[in-house]
Computed example of a mutant assay.
Amino acid sequence: MTQYVRDIMTGDPVTVEPQTSVTAVARIMRDRDLGAVLVTDGDRLRGLVTDRDLVVRSVAEGGDPEQTTVAGACSDEVVTVRPDDELNHAVELMREHAVRRVPVVDDGRPVGIVSLGDLAMERDPESALGDISVARPNP
């Protein structure tokens, strides 16, 4: 049976505008237990920023996180998939580009995100990665 991205994607992704401060994005990630948010300009995808991006591209550079915007920390060359793409296509892209998350766009607008954890749960919920993906975060 063919599976599609829409079948496992996490819908209604959290988005921020490029001028959002690094501190504000970090708080959103903490409060919503997220490892990544999408950066949008209006309703168009501009990039993706992970918790690691915030540390490596912003905090480690010594900038003031209150004054530094997420535009400088996000990955702006983002690989995307569509909801109607076959799931295997998403897996191939993730492998080829060595990414853990792929935004799902419909007509250029972000509608979801597919993560390595989503794939692990779909393919083998009993695997170690599947167990980790559903585990509650550390307090």
Rank of each mutant, 00 (worst) to 15 (best):
T10P: 10
V105F: 11
R46I: 00
D85Y: 14
L38G: 13
R100W: 03
H97G: 11
C74G: 01
R46W: 00
Y4V: 07
G108F: 01
A135P: 07
D64R: 00
A135E: 04
M29P: 06
Q19L: 11
P125F: 00
R136E: 08
T2N: 08
R44Y: 07
R52Y: 01
V39E: 02
M9W: 01
I28R: 07
G117M: 06
V111N: 10
A128E: 03
P18H: 14
L45E: 02
I113Q: 09
E77T: 12
R100G: 09
V37N: 07
M9N: 04
L34K: 12
P83G: 08
T10F: 02
N138I: 04
L38S: 13
T20H: 13
D51H: 13
G117P: 00
R52H: 03
L93R: 15
R32H: 12
Y4T: 08
N138Y: 07
R27S: 14
R109G: 10
A36T: 02
V104S: 09
P125R: 15
G47C: 13
V134E: 11
L93W: 01
A120H: 07
V16A: 06
L93Q: 15
T80G: 11
D118R: 10
E126Q: 11
T15P: 02
L38K: 14
R46A: 12
R95I: 12
V134L: 10
A120P: 07
D84Q: 15
R109F: 04
Q19S: 14
R95Q: 12
V102G: 12
S127P: 05
L48Q: 13
E122W: 13
R57M: 06
A73M: 04
A135K: 09
L87I: 10
S58H: 01
L129R: 15
E126L: 04
L45F: 06
D84Y: 10
V49A: 12
G117A: 13
R44Q: 15
R100S: 07
D33H: 15
V49M: 13
G62T: 02
P18M: 10
T10A: 10
R32G: 06
V70T: 04
A135D: 06
M29R: 12
A24Q: 03
V104H: 11
S58Y: 00
T23M: 14
P139K: 03
G47T: 01
P18Y: 04
T15I: 04
V111S: 09
R101G: 05
T40L: 11
L54M: 06
R109H: 10
V104F: 01
P18R: 15
A60K: 15
V114S: 13
V134H: 07
P13E: 05
R82H: 12
P65K: 05
E86Y: 15
D41L: 05
S75N: 07
S58T: 09
S58R: 03
N88E: 15
A24E: 01
V91M: 14
P65F: 01
V39K: 13
R6Q: 10
G108V: 02
M29K: 08
R136N: 05
G63S: 10
L34F: 03
L129H: 13
D124I: 00
S21P: 13
R32M: 06
P13F: 00
